[in-house]
Design a protein around this nucleic acid. Structure first.
Lengths: 346, 346
DNA sequence: CTCCTCCCGACAATCGATTGCAGGCACAAT
DNA sequence: ATTGTGCCTGCAATCGATTGTCGGGAGGAG
C-alpha cells in the first residue's frame, strides 16, 4: 500500500465570517457592505467594487440564516412525499424521483433549497403541524394519496401550498396534474382499437389519480355496450408488492385477459416481467398499456406503450403556481393534457 | 356536479407568532417562555405547565430560523447527489431513492431537515462553493462518481462531510460503504460454483465502486487459472441507456456467456428483461447475479440473486459519522461487509 | 467666502429566540 | 426585625444581516 501524501496547507488564519469583519477590512460600515453585496446602487461604484473583490478574495458568503431572519423568508420549499398508507419502499418508486429531480432543478434555478420530507400520516393534522413549524416558504405535496381531507383543511388557512395530482370538483387547494380521466379513456380506447375485448385494469383506486384513470376506462368500456369487459384488479403501488399481486391475479383469473391497462408504469413493467416470465407473449397474447411515461417505459423490453404525463412541465407549473401564491396571488388549479405514446407492447 | 360547501371558519384573529406574544398572554417574560418550552427546569413546574398549555392551545411553534441564528446551527443536512458525468434521469435510479429514503428517516429522527441537491459538476470547486454558502450543518454525498479530487480537497478543510461509496487507500475524507471488492469476489465465486465458465461483467468501471467490484471478479477468475474467462462490458449506469447497451452487447457477442455479473441491480433487471425478451432462459441458459439488493431485486421475476448492501445500516452509519464530526470528532471511514443473497436467477 | 444641494455611507433599530447574570420574593433562622 | 438562603424570573446582550433615516463632505452657485 503506497504512503499517503502529507497534510495540505491549514487554511488562512484570519477568517472573515460576518459582514462586520469584511466591513472592518474594507474600512466601511456593515451597512455599506450589505448594500454593496446586494448590488444596491446607493453605494458608490468604486466602494462597491472594492467590497465585492474583498468578499471574493476571502470566499465570503453572508449568512443565509441571518438574512432569512431579517428578510422574513426561509429560502426553502418543502417537498413532501406523502406515503398515504403504504410505508417503506414506496418512495423508491421511479415516479417520485422523476418528479423530485425536476423540482430540484426548478427550485434551484430560483435560488431556493429543496427540503425533502417523507410523511407517513398518523394523525390527520400532520400538514398543519408542518406548516406551524414553518421552516419553509411553501409546500409542494407529491401524491395526494388518500389525504385529501388533511390537504383541504390546511389549504383553507394557508396559501403557499400546491399539490401534484388529480383535480377534484370541490377542492379548495391548488393542484397541478394531468387529466387522468382522459388518460384512462385514451389507454382503454387504444386497447379496444387494437382488438382487445377483455381488459384488465391493474391499480388500486384508493388513490385519487388512479380512481380517475379507472373512471375513464369504465366510461369507454361502457360506451362499447357489453362488447368489451373490464376486469378491475387492485394492485399495490409499491414496486415490492405489485409483482406478487400481478402474479396472484394471473393465477386466479379463469381466462387470461387480452389487454391490460396498468395504472402506473411501475406496475406495467412488473406485469411485463410476470407475463414474459410465464411465457405469455406481449403484445402477442396480451397487449399492455402503462401510465406516466417514466424513463423505464422506454427502456423496458419490449418498450412500453403508455400515457404520457409531462413531468418537466408539471414541475415547472407547480413551482410557478407556488411562487405566485407566495406572492399572494390566489390562483387556480391546472389540468395538463394527457397523451398516448404508442410503443411495442400494444 | 355538486355544489361546494361554504368557506370554513376564518381562523382566530389574535395570532400568536412570537415567543413574546405568548409571554404576554402567559403574563411572563419571553425568557421564561423560551425556557419553559425548552424544558429547562430552572422554571417553576406550574409556570412551565401553563406556558406549554398556552403554546399548545395556540398551535405555537417557535421560529426555527431565529433559533438557529442564535444557536449557531442550521438544522439541516445537505444530501448531495453527484451526477458525475451523466445528466438527466440518472437520479431516478432506485438506488438513490433507497438511500435518500433511509437518510430522510435517520435525519428526521434527529430533528434535522434534509436538503436535497443535485449537482452536475462543472468546475472542480463546486463542493467548496456549497460549503462556503453554508446553509447547512453538514454534507452527505451520495455517489462519489469520478469526483474524488473535489471531495478530497473539500474534506481537507471541512470536517462535517461524509460520503457513501468506496474506501480508497489514501483518502482523507470519511466514507461509508460496503466492501465492493469482496462483493465482487462473492458474486463471481458463486457463478463459478454454479458451473459458469464464461462470465460477463456488466458495468462501467469509471465509477470507483464498480471498479472495485470488477477487481474482485478479476481476482477470483484469475485464481481459476484460465478455466474461467471474464468478459468485461462497460454498461451505462443510467436505466434509460443500460437496456440498449445490454442488447447491443448480446447482439455483438459471438457466443452467449453462461454467467453474468451485473454491477448494479438496475443493470441486472434490465439484463433480465433483455434476456427473457430474446427467449434466453434465466437461470437455465444464463445465470445472473446483481449488486445492491434493491427492492426490485426481490420483486423481479424470477427473483434476482444479488450481493446485498445494507442501505439501512449504511444510512445510519453515515448519519452517525456525520454527527460525530459535527461534534468535532475526526473519525475513520467504515467498510461494511457484503453478503450474497441467493435467489432464483442463479 | 458662504450657502445650498446632492449623494454616499454610518447609526441604530429590527427580525425572533437564547442565555448569563442579577435581582426579587418567600420563608426560615437568628 | 434583620439577615440569609434558595429558587425563580426578568433584563439585556447576542446571533448576523437588512434598511430607514440622518449627518457630513464635496462641489457648484451666488
Amino acid at each position: 500500500m503506497p504512503s499517503c501524501p502529507g497534510e495540505p496547507t491549514p487554511g488562512e488564519p484570519q477568517k472573515v465570517r460576518t459582514i462586520g469583519d469584511l466591513a472592518r477590512l474594507a474600512g466601511v460600515s456593515p451597512a455599506t457592505v450589505s448594500r454593496a453585496l446586494a448590488g444596491n446602487r446607493l453605494v458608490n461604484a468604486t466602494t462597491s467594487q472594492r467590497v465585492r473583490q474583498l468578499a471574493e478574495a476571502h470566499a465570503f458568503k453572508p449568512s443565509a440564516v441571518a438574512r432569512n431572519l431579517r428578510i422574513r423568508r426561509r429560502g426553502a420549499i418543502a417537498v413532501v412525499i406523502c406515503l398515504g398508507h403504504e410505508r417503506g419502499q414506496h418512495l423508491s418508486d421511479p415516479f417520485f424521483m422523476t418528479m423530485i429531480s425536476h423540482l430540484a432543478d426548478e427550485l434551484t434555478d430560483r435560488g431556493f433549497q429543496l427540503m425533502l420530507s417523507r410523511v407517513v400520516p398518523d394523525s390527520d393534522d400532520w400538514l398543519d403541524d408542518m406548516i406551524a413549524a414553518d421552516p419553509v416558504d411553501g409546500f409542494i405535496l407529491i401524491g395526494q394519496s388518500d389525504q385529501l381531507a388533511a390537504l383541504e383543511r390546511a389549504a383553507a388557512g394557508y396559501l403557499p401550498l400546491v399539490a401534484w395530482g388529480a383535480h377534484g370538483a370541490c377542492q379548495r387547494h391548488c393542484s397541478v396534474g394531468s387529466d387522468n380521466v382522459e388518460g384512462g379513456r385514451l389507454a382503454t380506447r387504444h386497447l379496444i382499437e387494437r382488438g382487445c375485448r377483455r381488459i384488465a385494469f391493474l391499480g388500486n383506486p384508493r388513490s385519487v389519480e388512479i380512481a380517475h384513470r379507472l373512471a375513464g376506462a369504465r366510461e369507454v368500456v361502457r360506451a362499447q355496450g357489453g362488447r368489451v369487459s373490464l376486469i378491475e384488479t387492485p394492485i399495490h403501488l409499491s414496486t415490492t408488492l405489485s409483482g406478487h399481486d400481478i402474479a396472484a391475479f394471473l393465477a386466479s383469473a379463469d381466462a387470461l385477459p387480452d389487454g391490460m391497462f396498468a395504472a402506473t408504469d411501475s406496475i406495467a413493467v412488473n406485469a411485463l416481467q410476470v407475463l414474459t416470465g410465464r411465457g405469455v407473449a406481449v403484445p402477442g397474447d396480451v397487449k399492455l398499456v402503462g401510465y406516466d411515461d417514466l424513463p423505464i417505459a422506454a427502456a423496458s423490453v419490449p418498450a412500453l406503450t403508455t400515457v404520457r404525463q409531462d413531468f418537466a412541465q408539471g414541475a415547472r407549473m407547480l413551482v410557478q403556481r407556488l411562487f405566485d401564491r407566495i406572492a399572494g396571488e390566489r390562483n387556480e388549479s391546472v389540468v395538463l393534457p394527457a397523451e398516448l405514446v404508442v410503443r411495442a407492447t400494444s
